Simulated assay, not measured.
Amino acid sequence: MSDYSISAIGHIQSPYKQKFAIPRQPRLVPEAKAKLIFAPEFNREEFIRGIDEFTHIWLLFRFHGTADKGFSAMVRPPRLGGNERKGVFATRATFRPNAIGMSAVKLEGIEYKNGQLSLLLAGIDLLDGTPIIDIKPYLPYSDAMQDASAGFADTRPETQMSVEFTPEVTYFIEQQTQHPDLLNFISNVLKQDPRPAYKKQKDGEQSYGMTLYDYNIRWQVNGEHNVVTSIEKS
């Protein structure tokens, strides 16, 4: 088997600062905005000329947060509650031989600021700092296969999770102006129920924390109800 060397063309500047709470697929949280910051070698308009004619793009990336942990032939997909094993090539698990992933995301614009070229993206599901190794335009007539089926992941994951914010948290979010969709963003992240599968089987109140953008957020889960109890600058 031949070895190949692949260099990143850029990296993602994402609101997700830790693996916990990242949606398990792209576009499940539309409010998740990000930037693709091009590396110096590719920081030229020629590389993306015409890309603004497309509404969505494919990102090929490296799972840099787990690449050093190696790979497994069998994994436990969260969609199956972590109770059933599948072959890694039958899943989108992170523990892959080459640690390569892909996401179809919305392209919202192009930014050129202080000499830095960036793509503005939405519906992202990538950890902050993720290396991007390629970009391809999304082609609806070819990429969206209407007669396709997807086995154990055939339907969009849905939960019955509800989300409530304490008055203090709501006031804090309403006063900040940097992220106008912050309340909806937090709400939709929690509606995806980011807890590990084994935690979902436990009864009683559970407390969690996550970092989105530069905010530390804490919430409590009781059954299928979330209460966001605190938010503060990290």
Rank of each mutant, 00 (worst) to 15 (best):
S103P: 12
E108L: 08
I110S: 06
I110Q: 05
K113C: 06
K113A: 03
G115L: 12
L117Q: 13
L117I: 12
S118D: 05
S118H: 03
L119T: 07
L119Q: 05
A122F: 06
I124R: 03
D125M: 03
L126Q: 01
L126M: 04
L127V: 01
L127M: 05
D128I: 01
D128Y: 04
G129W: 02
G129T: 02
G129E: 00
T130N: 00
T130W: 00
T130Q: 01
P131Q: 00
P131K: 02
I133A: 03
I133F: 02
D134T: 06
D134C: 06
K136Q: 09
Y138S: 03
Y138M: 04
L139P: 13
L139C: 14
P140M: 04
Y141H: 09
S142V: 10
S142F: 13
S142N: 09
S142E: 13
D143L: 02
A144K: 12
A144R: 11
A144F: 10
M145I: 14
Q146H: 12
Q146D: 14
Q146C: 08
D147V: 11
A148L: 07
A148F: 07
A148E: 12
S149G: 13
S149P: 07
S149L: 10
S149K: 15
A150M: 04
A150Q: 03
G151A: 10
F152Q: 09
A153E: 14
D154N: 12
T155I: 04
R156I: 10
R156S: 08
P157N: 03
E158M: 10
T159P: 06
T159M: 00
T159K: 05
Q160N: 15
Q160I: 06
M161F: 06
M161T: 01
S162C: 05
S162T: 13
V163M: 13
V163D: 11
F165C: 09
T166Q: 12
T166M: 13
T166Y: 08
P167L: 04
P167D: 06
E168P: 12
V169P: 11
T170L: 07
T170H: 09
T170R: 08
T170K: 11
Y171E: 15
